[in-house]
Design a protein around this nucleic acid. Sequence first.
DNA 1: TAGACGTGGTA
DNA 2: TTACCAAGTCT
Length: 304
Amino acid sequence: MPETTLATEVIRWYEKNARDLPWRVPGVGAWAILVSEVMLQQTPVVRVLPAWQSWLERWPTPAALAADTSAEAIRMWGRLGYPRRALRLWECAVAIVDRHGGQVPTDLDELLALPGVGTYTGRAVATFAYGQRHPVVDTNVRRVVARAVAGEPDAGPATRPADLVATEALLPAEPAVAARASAAIMELGAMVCTAQSPNCVGCPLIDRCAWRASGLPAPAGPTRRPQRYAGTDRQVRGLLLAVLRETTGPVSRDRLDLVWSDATQRSRALASLLDDGLVELVGEKFALAGDGPVAPTPSGAAAG
DNA sequence: TAGACGTGGTA
DNA sequence: TTACCAAGTCT
């Protein structure tokens, strides 16, 4: 058994091999890190990079975003995917201004209470922005721990409390070092211990990996049903939203009818967008939420 | 807890 | 071309 800990080994590897990602630059604020974490949810780094830059140039603080409309946030989100994240991030900015004086909270429970901030994102912000000691468990970390520690070919489909416990057990005592370890394990999962074809030869854990030790057993079988996209409501929602994103004001139903031939599915998709709060009804027309004719401003003359 | 929720790149 | 996958969250 090696004398060093798993965390020490991975941190050492990280020092040499970490990518130069802008949200990892020392001094980057909590807001910038929060934005990166939300954008990174289910979205590859290469696509987040330019979006993150633009977003922060326009809205360098939660207050700046909160002062703008949710419609602008949804527009700026562009084609990153899962546009509900844009709306939640905007709601998040509003909540940060309302409840925390414009400062991203440091307390984990307060972070977790923010819209769009879940088990992973809350701990990621508390850890990477504030240097606290929390298990930061994403799909990469779960995979590394499942393989290296548990000897299993892959992690389960969702993060469970047990995953947090197992990861916490790997963290060094010192908060700053634990934070480093979390970033390093995540990076290892993203760059080396990948889902598809792990590069075991380049892995710092090769000599202590339980999965490797048991002969790299293959995954049991089809873990989940494949997710189709073409022809789903999801695709129709995307088409509908794309039209609204590219238009400044409200759009007629006739215009939206052009994006999809099946009226039933079209209506269902539009209804779900309204239900999600991504789209709003403006008279007979439809607009991005917050893009309505009258955006009530607290300082405005209108009484309301 | 399983399923919904975008989008685009790679094999 | 199909299938999988990419730093999850919410219901």
